[in-house]
């Protein structure tokens, strides 16, 4: 009786595991299957202009906004993480950390709305790269902060004590002693944040809007395309080719994100090994 009950329990658990594993496989299979007719080099050299079936404008826009997010949220997030890990203490530290984490709970569509009302309208930037970058930065900031914080906190205590014993200043300690071992984890945090930014749609719809052309120069008043937008807008169009394009763009997005996730993971594993060697 005990063993029957156990067997049923584990059978249910195995089904649960299958339910976790199966969707990802099926998603990738579906994307490849539907996108297959479009998967050729010209996909990357064609924009969606005049019904073109390509992701060139989408990729360029996504890369641009990704770079912008890295420039804006990167330094701010790393410094904020540094502050929480190394400078703040007691209650302020707990509060800053808490609210930074809570910021990650703000729905992305709300960030999109705020971006539209404030950046696009009130500040008069129009649909633009700048508005998109600022909105997305708000969204990924908590991840950069959290990973930086964890990176600094995982530096072994012995290194800090050594630095203190040498009488090094705060700045020198951070720059020469703490930063080198913390850097890989900070970088992997940035890579993962970039992956999140690449997959976002809702905040971009109302800050970047959409353009069938390749992104133009100019930070404001320049709507532009992005990969998730190619998925969204093409899927809503009624032709078969557009449908295939939506899946092709989705496949490209997923591959980009998967590469980033794997890269982030490799860097993290390396960092773990490094930190393990430091601990004597």
């Amino acid at each position: 009786m005990r063993h029957t009950r156990g067997a049923i329990f584990w059978l249910l658990c195995a089904i649960a595991l299958a339910v976790i594993v199966f969707p990802l496989i099926d998603i990738v299979v579906t994307l490849v299957r539907v996108a297959a007719p479009l998967l050729r080099p010209s996909l990357f050299a064609t924009t969606t202009q005049a019904g073109g079936l390509g992701v060139e404008n989408g990729i360029l826009g996504s890369l641009l906004v990704g770079a912008g997010v890295l420039i804006v949220a990167g330094p701010i997030g790393v410094l904020a993480g540094l502050y929480i890990a190394e400078f703040a203490s007691g209650r302020p530290r707990a509060l800053l950390r808490f609210f930074s984490e809570v910021l990650s709970g703000v729905p992305s569509i709300v960030v999109g709305y705020v971006g539209y009302v404030v950046l696009v309208k009130a500040l008069g930037w129009g649909y633009s790269l700048l508005a998109a970058v600022v909105a997305l930065s708000m969204l990924i900031l908590p991840y950069v902060v959290k990973n930086t914080e964890v990176a600094f906190e995982s530096v072994p205590r012995s290194l800090r004590e050594g630095a203190a014993a040498l009488g090094l200043s705060r700045l020198t300690t951070i720059r020469r002693v703490l930063l080198p071992p913390a850097l890989p984890l900070i970088v992997s945090g940035l890579v993962l944040a970039e992956a999140i930014a690449t997959g976002e749609t809702a905040p971009l719809l109302f800050t970047a809007n959409w353009s069938d052309l390749n992104p133009q120069l100019g930070l404001t008043h320049n709507p532009f395309g992005y990969l998730t937008g190619t998925v969204y807008y093409s899927f809503n169009l009624p032709s078969k080719g557009e449908h295939q394009l939506a899946f092709a763009a989705a496949l490209v997005t997923v591959v980009m994100i998967l590469l980033m996730v794997i890269a982030g993971r490799l860097i993290t594993m390396r960092a773990r090994r490094m930190t393990a060697n430091l601990e004597v």
């Binding site: 998603i27 579906t30 994307l31 749609t201 998925v231 989705a250 997923v254």
Partner: peptide
């Protein structure tokens, strides 16, 4: 790793998968 990848699939991709398949 699998869970991280699943977490990385964009919402919009879940959307078209949900409608299509």
């Amino acid at each position: 790793l699998f869970l991280e990848l699943l977490a990385g699939i964009p919402s919009v991709v879940f959307g078209i998968w949900g409608v299509y398949t």
